[in-house]
Simulated scan of single mutants.
Amino acid sequence: MKLDMNALMKQAQQMQEQMLRAQEEAKSEIKEASAGGGMVTVKASGAGELVEIRIDPRAIDPDDPELLADMVLAASNEALRAAAQSVESKLRGQMPDLGSLGLPGV
């Protein structure tokens, strides 16, 4: 079985273009997470940026600022984690079956 390098290079270029498109699409996806029974809600983009934080006024206790900080931190981490998983899933879906490339032993 002879390996067609031109076909392989063309397929690799198509794969790269698909991956770039998937990355751009994933960056615009927004994931949301909350903590404290919904008292703190955070939205994060697939680009790894926090885009919104909402805090219910009832969550603001002047005698316990650490609780609010913990809720913001927990919701932020979960939103970022969900966004990263979404990006990873989208990119994994763009990966070809490497055996279809005609590479021996793959």
Score class of each variant (00 low, 15 high):
Gly93Met: 08
Gly36Glu: 03
Asn77Val: 13
Leu103Ser: 06
Ala79Pro: 12
Ala74Phe: 00
Ser89Met: 10
Met9Tyr: 11
Leu103His: 03
Lys2Ala: 13
Gly105Tyr: 05
Lys27Val: 00
Glu32Trp: 00
Ala79Ile: 12
Ala7Cys: 03
Gln14Phe: 08
Pro96Met: 11
Leu50Cys: 11
Ala69Leu: 12
Lys2Val: 11
Ala26Lys: 03
Ala83Ser: 15
Leu68Arg: 08
Leu73Thr: 15
Leu8Thr: 14
Ala22Thr: 02
Met1Thr: 15
Ser76Glu: 14
Ser100Cys: 05
Leu101Asn: 10
Ala79Glu: 12
Leu3Arg: 11
Leu8Asp: 06
Arg92Leu: 08
Val42Ile: 11
Val42Arg: 08
Glu52Trp: 00
Lys31Val: 01
Ala47Arg: 04
Glu88Val: 01
Pro57His: 10
Ala84Ile: 02
Glu52Cys: 02
Ala74Gln: 09
Leu3Met: 14
Ile30Val: 15
Ser76Ile: 00
Met1Asp: 15
Ser34Met: 06
Arg81Pro: 04
Ser86Ile: 05
Lys90Tyr: 03
Lys31Pro: 03
Leu103Lys: 07
Ala12Met: 13
Gly38Lys: 07
Arg54Gly: 09
Gln16Trp: 07
Gly99Ile: 12
Leu73Gln: 15
Ala22Cys: 00
Gly37Leu: 03
Glu25Phe: 06
Met5Asp: 13
Glu78Phe: 01
Asp4Asn: 14
Arg92Ser: 14
Gln14Asp: 15
Ile60Ala: 08
Lys27Leu: 01
Lys27Met: 02
Ile55Gly: 10
Ala84Asp: 14
Leu3Glu: 10
Ser86Glu: 13
Ala33Arg: 02
Gln23Thr: 12
Ala82Gly: 04
Arg81Glu: 10
Ala35Gly: 08
Ser28Ile: 02
Ser28Leu: 07
Val42Asp: 06
Leu68His: 04
Ser100Ile: 08
Gln18His: 11
Ala7Phe: 09
Lys43Leu: 09
Asp4Gln: 12
Gly36Gln: 04
Val87Phe: 00
Ser86Trp: 07
Met5Pro: 09
Val51Gln: 00
Val72Leu: 04
Gly37Val: 09
Asp64Glu: 14
Gln94Leu: 05
Thr41Leu: 03
Arg92Phe: 01
